[in-house]
Design a protein around this nucleic acid. Structure first.
Length: 330
DNA sequence: AAGACGGGGTT
DNA sequence: AACCCAGTCTT
């Protein structure tokens, strides 16, 4: 038996005995549910994403409902999940599917790639889980598992690495009869056993032939290129409250917090204004935001804002730091 | 090829 | 504090 088949069979065996019961995992997976769950879970832990999956599926039970939804309503449900362009692209994708595919997800990997928000990972997941296409998923788990087992030292976040790991993943999946099970299996294996820190090598069914385990390089794999330094930014929010309403404005459609609502920003600490709480450090993965909230009069703020009540705010997407503040103060 | 894009959990 | 998470898009 070759190395690829040995690997695949162990993964399938592992999955059959360890798979978690997740809401979108069904005997006959529903393509829309798989798509929605995969978008929500991009760069997001299952535990964090699952409640959002339930809320959003309940609010928009079909692709058509999602396509015709108010963007603000979708973003309101997405509030706190991060990477908000996922939500906006999800809806663009839904519109594409309604327009070009009669509201049904296409079945082929190459067709799925044309849909907004669907990249190589998500296309492979949908095509394999829903339509039995043999394309390997490549996510953070897969990079880790493959790099260790096969001893691949190419950086996973380099162009060469992405190609190499995709090719390897495609090689591994070739022999299977159940592409969706195998793909979910390798991710489950990475999430539960072949973990980033302290992987459970002693109980690993593949340790006899794992390159990393047998060369003592488990801790050195996968190899990743370092990202640049984080940047710092200071934000001054102008809080104007009148008659149980607060002034909010919708952000531009690109950059951070695209399309979300926030307090109008001030260029600097205002001359006339009361600091409502000690400046908060809001840490994003790529920058540190020092946020100050100032009670100011309406003359201090400018731009295209409107006043919203507690009820109206429920229908708006907001960065979590704004949503939390509004919840406390309104 | 490199950076931008969130927020939260783990080590 | 650094790393990671069922990645994708833009420049």
């Amino acid at each position: 038996m070759d190395r690829f088949n040995r690997f695949r069979i162990s993964i399938e065996e592992y999955y059959s005995t360890h798979k978690r019961d997740l809401p979108w995992r069904k005997e006959a997976p529903v393509p829309y549910e798989v798509w929605l769950s995969e978008i929500i879970l991009q760069q997001t832990r299952v535990a964090q994403g699952t409640p959002y999956y339930h809320k959003i599926l309940a609010a928009f039970p079909t692709i058509a409902a999602l396509a015709y939804a108010e963007e603000d309503k979708l973003l309101a449900l997405w509030t706190g999940l991060g990477y908000y362009n996922r939500a906006r692209n999800l809806q663009k994708g839904a519109k594409q599917i309604v327009a070009k595919y009669q509201g049904q997800l296409p079945e082929k990997y190459n067709e799925l790639l044309n849909i907004k928000g669907i990249g190589p990972y998500t296309a492979a997941a949908i095509a394999s889980i829903c339509f039995q296409e043999k394309i390997g998923v490549v996510d953070g788990n897969v990079y880790r598992v493959l790099s260790r087992y096969f001893g691949i030292h190419t950086a996973t976040n380099s162009s060469a690495g992405q190609k190499e790991f995709q090719n390897l993943a495609n090689e591994c999946i070739k022999g299977t009869k159940h592409p969706g099970q195998y793909n979910q299996g390798i991710m489950e294996f990475g999430a539960l056993l072949c973990t980033p820190k302290k992987p459970n090598c002693m109980y690993c069914p593949l340790n006899d032939t794992c390159h990393a385990f047998n060369t003592g390089s488990v801790g050195a794999l996968p190899v990743k290129l370092k990202k640049g330094k984080r940047t710092k930014e200071t934000l001054h929010f102008g809080v104007v409250q009148k008659a149980e309403k607060m002034a909010l404005r919708k952000r531009e459609t690109d950059g951070i917090w695209a399309g979300l609502y926030e307090f109008p920003q001030l260029n600097d600490a205002p001359e006339h204004g009361q600091l409502l709480e000690e400046p908060v450090l809001h840490k994003l993965s790529h920058k540190d935001l020092y946020c100050s909230f100032w009670a100011v009069s309406e003359t201090e703020i400018s731009g295209d804002y409107s006043f919203y009540s507690k009820e109206e705010v429920q229908e708006l997407g907001m960065p979590i730091i704004i949503a939390d503040f509004v919840a406390k103060r309104l």
